[in-house]
Design a protein around this nucleic acid. Structure first.
Length: 596
RNA sequence: GCCGAUGUAGCUCAGUGGUAGAGCAGCUGUUUCGUAAACAGCAGGUCACCGGUUCGAAUCCGGUCAUCGGCUCCA
């Protein structure tokens, strides 16, 4: 049974109504808008007469408990027609506060399609003091039978939310809460939230020495520490090797360019507010910090006459781009202002589009598998049939939309179609992954583009010795290194698989007299291509194990008199003591693990 | 950018009007140790920043900045 059909869903929906009832009683003049159940709870968007503070949640929660205990029956009411619905909203749902108080509900009513029935949910009861409590809300439902069933809930936080999700509208106050069937489930949920915070990449990034931010450098500008930079290099090496196999060619381009490049590409028109402020040189030439790599790669393509025989051309670059994200959107490594895309641009003939797209999807699948990511969503963004903002000919769009679908189907990649999510210049495929707190982030992306080849008048000479326009594919399997490594940190809770781990092996000499042997062992393992550190601090073995364990190192090798004499090491994995092993045996074991 | 919250030592946190505290980390000394924290001592702070109220501000008020949870937007 789907979540939407479950009792839990109805419970949360009814909890949202209960919260709205409590707010209506506590804050006369509060204007209610919408209050749906969501993945882990519910919310209600409300315009309060005066801004409210987080501490007031407790008061609202208290009121909810009182109202729940009244065991108000929840009754569905059908409005006979629009006029009656309007009357109910104006006269019954606003506690006599009139039309001004019902603005959002009236707008919602107008949005309900003509043929559809209009229903209300009503809950009412009289308390011991003889006071009557009534709450009626325009709502599709369904709900529980009685407010008495709402017992295990908690209000979580306050946030602002634009009415109907549109920045041009008024910002309402959103109250978030959660509710469960049992006390245990509620407690488990809250406990898991706490646990998830320990996997937060911002916490682990510092603890494990991966990356950091500094106020002196600036918001959203990451600093990669040695271990993080090592991890980053490992991932880049992997992808680069994979791309080499697939006929990609490396290119390298600058971080700034004349504004003329971005005028030509059209980004100045569509992207200006996401770009860092421009800079001007002494000769009044304006330069911009690059927000995208594509125009540079296009210049390289356009630098010589291309034959149809050369295509597809695939230019790849780990290109660092800068985007002036709004301050409130920054989120650790998951949302930064300077990031490196594992970018590439493919210039293809129409007859190559399907195969090339398949090649890219295959690469993405290879990457996902290697990274151990299995929890992801694939979204194919196609045109919204009602929209006219798109560039390019219809037959091209049909060609590329079907190429994307075919590529996925032939490679067994499950996807969901999302009409309207295409870029204005072409359809795309996005990879979406959740972080520790369950928030979704767009990672890898493949986009078909007819716009830029047009704007830059790109050509190749066809078999017919006439010029033809190539199609571009933009693609980034990781998306960005910052976001990907942030996410991987959370996925693995810092315990990266052996091949990724910045330090794979720590050698732990027991006493000072074992330091030389430890260095020799480390050198030997490094000779095998392993990333090895020696922990020769003057600390007890127990302490070294504890701390290296906390650093989530895959292997620790304990080295003492017994081992030096026998040519062994005491091997310890992340979880357990594996006992003494010959050094060669350990090398074989680790090598096998890396190969497998 | 907008709504709400937070900002005290490298880290985690205590301190609600009377001159700043703990644990861990650091440094020094002792200990040379076989599988998750040896012992002792020392040092460390413009209480984010700027302004105001007050005899007196980490504490109250205002502003700025940064961070966190959302909204919008996105790799």
């Amino acid at each position: 049974m789907s979540y939407e059909d479950s009792r839990l869903y109805r419970l949360r929906h009814s909890a949202a109504h209960l919260m709205a009832q409590a707010v209506a009683e506590l804050y006369p003049g509060a204007k209610l808008s919408i209050g749906p159940p969501i993945e882990n709870g519910f919310y209600y968007d409300i315009e309060f007469p005066a801004s409210i503070k987080e501490e007031e949640l407790e008061r609202i929660e208290q009121k909810m408990k009182e109202l729940a205990k009244l065991k108000q029956p929840i009754v569905r009411r059908l409005a006979a027609d629009r006029d009656e619905a309007r009357r109910i909203i104006l006269e019954e749902t606003t506690n006599g506060e009139g039309a001004e108080n019902a603005v959002y509900k009236l707008e919602l009513l107008d949005a309900i399609p003509g043929g559809e029935e209009v229903s209300f949910y009503e809950q009412r009861a009289t308390d011991k003091q003889g006071q009557e409590h009534v709450f009626i809300d325009l709502c599709r439902g369904p709900h529980l039978e009685n407010t008495g069933e709402i017992q295990h809930f908690k209000l979580m936080n306050i946030a602002g939310a634009y009415w109907r999700g549109d920045v041009r509208n008024k910002m309402l106050t959103r109250l978030y809460g959660t509710a469960f069937e049992t006390k245990e489930e509620l407690e488990t949920y809250l406990h898991n939230l706490e646990e998830a915070k320990k996997r937060d990449h911002r916490v682990l990034g510092r603890e494990l020495g991966l990356f950091m931010f500094s106020p002196r450098v600036g918001p959203g500008l990451a600093l990669w520490l040695p271990k993080g930079a090592t991890l980053r290099n490992v991932l880049c090496d992997f992808l680069q090797a994979e791309q080499l196999k697939r006929g990609y060619q490396p290119v390298v381009t600058p971080n700034i360019a004349s504004i003329r490049l971005y005028e030509k590409s059209g980004h100045i028109l569509t992207y200006r507010d996401k770009m860092f402020p421009f800079m001007e040189d002494e000769e009044k030439e304006t330069f911009v910090l690059k927000p995208m790599n594509c125009p540079f790669h296009i210049e390289i393509y356009a630098s010589s006459l291309r034959s149809y025989r050369e295509l597809p051309v695939r230019y790849a670059e780990f290109g660092t781009v800068y985007r002036y994200e709004q301050s409130g959107e920054l989120a650790g490594m998951l949302r930064v202002r300077g990031f490196t895309q594992d970018d590439a641009h493919l210039f293809v003939r129409p007859d190559q589009l399907l195969d090339e797209f398949k090649g890219v999807v295959d690469l993405m699948l290879t990457v996902l598998k290697k990274l151990g990511l299995s929890e992801y969503r694939v979204r194919v963004g196609t045109r919204d049939p009602g929209e006219t903002k798109y560039v390019g000919h219809d037959e091209n769009w049909e060609l590329s939309e079907s190429a994307i679908k075919q590529a996925c189907e032939q490679l067994g990649l499950e996807y969901e179609l999302s009409p309207g999510d295409a870029a204005f210049y072409g359809p795309k495929l996005d990879l979406i992954i959740k972080d520790a707190l369950g928030r979704e982030w767009q990672m890898g992306t493949v986009q078909v583009d007819y716009n830029l080849p047009e704007r830059f008048e790109l050509e190749y000479i066809g078999e017919d010795s006439k010029p033809h326009r190539p199609i571009m594919i933009h693609r980034a399997p990781f998306g960005s290194l910052e976001r990907m490594i942030g996410l991987l940190t959370e996925q693995y809770a810092g315990a990266f698989p052996l091949w990724m781990a910045p330090v794979q092996v720590a050698v732990l000499p027991i006493a000072d007299r074992h330091n030389d042997a430890a260095e020799a062992l480390a050198a030997r393992l490094r000779g095998q291509g392993l990333r090895v550190e020696v922990d020769d601090r003057r600390e007890t073995l127990g302490k070294k194990i504890r701390e290296n364990q906390r650093q989530k190192l895959p292997y620790m090798l304990v080295l003492g008199d017994r081992d030096i004499e026998a040519g062994t090491v005491g091997v310890r994995s992340r979880t357990e003591d594996l006992g003494a092993m010959a050094v060669d045996e350990f090398v074989v074991k680790v090598t096998a693990e890396l190969a497998g």
